[in-house]
Amino acid sequence: MTIADITHPSPAEPSLFVRGIRQVRKVPFSVAFGIAWLAAMVLIAFFADLLRPYGITAMDLRARLSLPGNPPHLLGTDELGRDVLSRLLQSIRVSLAIAFGATIISAVLGTTLGFAAAKFRGAVEHLVLVLADFQAALPFLVMSLAVLAFFGSSMPLLIGLMGFYGWERYARIARGLAISASAQGYAAAVVQLGATPLRVYLHHILPNVASTLIVSMTLTFPEIILMESGLSFLGLGVQPPETSLGNMVGFGRDYLTRAPWIMLAPAIVIMVTTLSISLVGDWLRDKLDPTLR
């Protein structure tokens, strides 16, 4: 606030509605686009069954590899005459569901371990830090490939595995923040009032560090989408007949010369989605967490 603002107090506060409009108009175009795209993706994920014109395994053998833009198959068909648009909608649902589930698992796991390290210190803290070192030492893609080699791929395993993605970041952040928070007055005060450690951490420390953790989630989410797509692209993630974005790119690769649209449609969705998340995430970071700027 400048001196001018203080000496000339502003007239009556604008109504909530007007302020809301002003807030919306301040959002840059790229962020608005990102939010709109992500909203569309979430809607598609929820209503894929209603939106898709054909079943994902329904074959139209007379219209194999048909070009995009024609009325019955707007995005064309693949080598078996399956509708690319329908498969794309279902893939968006599967990829987003995996990424969403995995982000939640990873955030909960990492934050819990980080808080445990901060609470117990000593041996527990060393154990968590060694596990974090281990995770950082092994590229995640390589670790996932090893686990899939040993256990074979299945949907629950895939989500569980992706749930380990990035936990060490939450753990480090949560540990650091919890240690500094417990040195502050409010945490000491509720401990003096007789609150259990669980209550101190869940009701008092967690809300105070949540914004930083949410920012980390916006960073992990697109990375999980890319990781799952990569695994599925290699044929080791989501298994047919189920389909995911990486899966579609992987199959489209064999028809790159004759039918590039099979691969381009999911590739564009992956790129625009991860781009939108980073744009919105960057913007959220500036809003929520000035220390990270």
Binding site: S229, G230, V249, P260, A267, T274, S278
Partner: peptide
Amino acid sequence: IFGFTIPSFVMGLLLVLIFSI
């Protein structure tokens, strides 16, 4: 931004599409 958002398998296939095909 492109480095973060374009996965390597998409980048690789796009390059193949442009330079090879």
